[in-house]
Computed example of a mutant assay.
Amino acid sequence: MIVQQNTDIEIRLLIEAIYLKYSYDFRDYAGASVKRRVQHALTQLECKTVSALQERVIHDPTAFMQLLQYLTIPVSEMFRDPDHFLAIRQEVVPLLRTYPSIKVWIAGCSTGEEVYSMAILLREEGLLERTIIYATDINPTSLEKAKKGVYSMEAMRIYGNSYQRAGGKRDFSDYYTAAYGHAIMDGSLRENVTFADHSLATDSVFSETQLVSCRNVLIYFNKGLQERAFGLFHESLCHRGFMVLGSKETVDFSAYSDKFEPLVKQERIYRKK
């Protein structure tokens, strides 16, 4: 029990030290999630205690960047939950067509899979050319991977199946070039994409948008940080704009529940009232 309490204290001190030293704020992330990630990082970075890890990351920015990869879990898929993207195609796109220009914010874009999924969908619906996509994340390594748009061919085969189930209108292979066991995404898909560092914990709104997508990010936040994120999304969205969340996330029971109405509730697609 005492060992457990000591570990919890060490983790709180580590998270506070990261905020003071590097301005990355994990203080309001869900405690159990942070604990799992830190304990996994201990093994990978060969540190015996959290205190040893703290000392290392404070004095070595490279070690902090290594730790950041475990704290942010850069995991994503293209057309993840195909029914979700099918619902966007069928229910949201017809309404987006009514705007002369469109701005989409993908918050927590990780390594870019959702960015390319959205770009492909919008291209097939004839909207990409008049759309600006803001792809943001707190992890600079993930953002670099997203900009390059290089993924394994093994993953692309899985993504291709999801793309078809999401209502894809072409061959998925039309959107990438295969080389040396990897797939390079068509560069034209990111011509209207701005990749940027942005933290939902510390940063503010930067643009008015018609659609905000933040999927499988809020589950790692505590209640207070979830409320902050919903506030940012509400402020960013134009009148009657759209907010889409992950399959295990909901605006229900939050302070913003009365400011959004479900458009496709099962797929966590909401519309600003």
Score class of each variant (00 low, 15 high):
P61T: 03
V115H: 04
Y151L: 01
T43K: 13
E124Y: 01
L127D: 03
E113K: 12
Q39L: 14
Y175T: 03
E55A: 09
K103S: 11
M78R: 04
A166M: 06
A63W: 07
L67I: 14
M156Q: 06
L68S: 07
Y70G: 10
R123D: 10
M153S: 14
W105H: 02
T136L: 06
L96M: 08
I158R: 15
V92C: 08
K147Y: 11
T62E: 15
G167P: 05
R170T: 12
T62N: 14
R37D: 01
Q164P: 00
A178I: 13
R165L: 14
K145Y: 14
M78C: 02
M118P: 06
Y151I: 08
E144L: 13
S162E: 05
E113W: 05
K103F: 05
K145R: 14
T49H: 09
S76A: 09
P74G: 00
S110W: 00
D137V: 07
L42F: 09
M65N: 13
L68D: 02
P74I: 03
P74Q: 05
E55C: 10
R123W: 09
G168F: 02
T136W: 06
K103G: 04
G167K: 07
I132L: 13
T131L: 05
S101C: 08
I138S: 06
P82G: 01
T111N: 11
L95E: 12
D137K: 09
S173V: 13
P74D: 04
Q164R: 14
V104K: 08
I58K: 15
S117W: 03
P82I: 05
V150G: 04
Q54R: 15
E114N: 05
M156G: 01
L96R: 02
N161Q: 15
